[in-house]
């Protein structure tokens, strides 16, 4: 039985980190209907800033995590201001193309640094012995990842539901023109959406970097790996990202634990999430919790 519960715990851990990585996508889409394809690069940037502060500037690791989130918050905000603000009102596809360009620019910049082609590792700062109960174990790093995810999800959920800025962001997402007509600053909302996405990406980068080590190739791949999670969750739903992330994590662990290597099946952990995604999208084209828009013509 501990085998089963170990898979559940691992699935929740992996799923939470997927959800954390997916948050940035959701935050930007929720307010601007734009898919930021450079999200993986921002995740990597956040992780590298965190590492640089910890190892090169000798900042205590918890503070460097926080600082990396703040720095990435402003970096993402600047990126929006420099590259994307001029595209307000332009077709969404143009903005998405710009994010592809942005991806190449950030890639290029990171390749100019040692992070582009070397492996790094955060110094251990949590107890190395795992927490074990009834044969089920979880490392402190994984536990930290789960806690950060749920704290951030909680904060963002409150922010979107209760705060004036959050409500403005939702209003802009629904209708930019109508929002402007009631005095909401659309450029400011877009800037904030990118900034908060940057903040969550830095958190995701730091958590992933602590688990896998810092390898640019691995880190920026998470921008793509979590794509099924974002789609399954419904693109603009924070709750959707969490639920879809955990579903994906659990499916991967159960597929790997029970299917792979049996009955001639291999690689199901990689394939099953996509099969599920296809099936669910056939039944629910807007994802699990996505906004179902009805256009009157």
């Amino acid at each position: 039985m501990s085998y089963f519960f170990q898979l559940v715990v691992s699935g929740i851990v992996v799923g939470s980190i997927y959800a954390l990585s997916a948050l940035g996508f959701v935050l930007i889409y929720k307010s601007s209907r734009v898919l930021n394809l450079a999200h993986g690069q921002i995740i990597a940037t956040g992780a590298f800033i965190s590492y640089g502060l910890t190892v090169w500037a000798n900042v205590p690791i918890y503070i460097s995590f926080l600082l990396s989130m703040i720095i990435t918050f402003f970096l993402a905000m600047s990126v929006e201001k420099i590259f994307l603000r001029r595209l307000i009102g332009e077709p969404i596809i143009s903005v998405i193309m710009v994010t592809i360009g942005l991806m190449s620019i950030i890639d290029g910049l990171i390749y100019l640094t040692p992070f582009g082609s070397e492996n790094f590792s955060f110094p251990p700062f949590l107890p190395q012995q795992p927490i074990t109960y009834a044969g089920v174990s979880i490392s402190y790093t994984q536990l930290m990842g789960v806690i950060i995810t749920f704290v951030l999800i909680g904060v963002f959920s409150w922010f979107f539901k209760k705060s004036t800025v959050g409500i403005s962001m939702r209003a802009v997402s629904d209708d930019q023109l109508a929002s402007m007509s009631i005095g909401v600053s659309v450029p400011r909302v877009f800037g904030l959406a990118w900034a908060t996405a940057g903040l969550s990406a830095a958190a995701a980068g730091s958590v992933i970097g602590n688990i896998t080590g810092l390898n640019f190739d691995t880190l920026h791949a998470f921008g793509i790996i979590v794509f099924p999670v974002v789609i399954l969750g419904g693109l603009d739903s924070l709750l959707g990202a969490v639920v879809a992330g955990i579903i994906m994590g659990l499916i991967q662990q159960f597929a790997s634990g029970y299917l792979d290597g049996n009955w001639g099946l291999y690689g199901t952990a990689q394939v099953l999430p996509y099969i599920l995604l296809l099936v669910l999208l056939l039944l629910k084209p807007h994802g699990l919790f996505g906004t179902h828009e009805i256009e009157r013509v």
């Binding site: 170990q6 994984q142 896998t212 691995t218 998470f222 662990q253 790997s256 634990g257």
Partner: peptide, 19 residues
């Protein structure tokens, strides 16, 4: 040779190792 495992970009290999 019990298994040939092709890995992905895995965050956690618990299931594979337990298996």
């Amino acid at each position: 040779i019990v298994e040939v495992v092709e890995h992905g970009k895995d965050l956690d290999n618990t299931a594979m190792l337990q298996r």
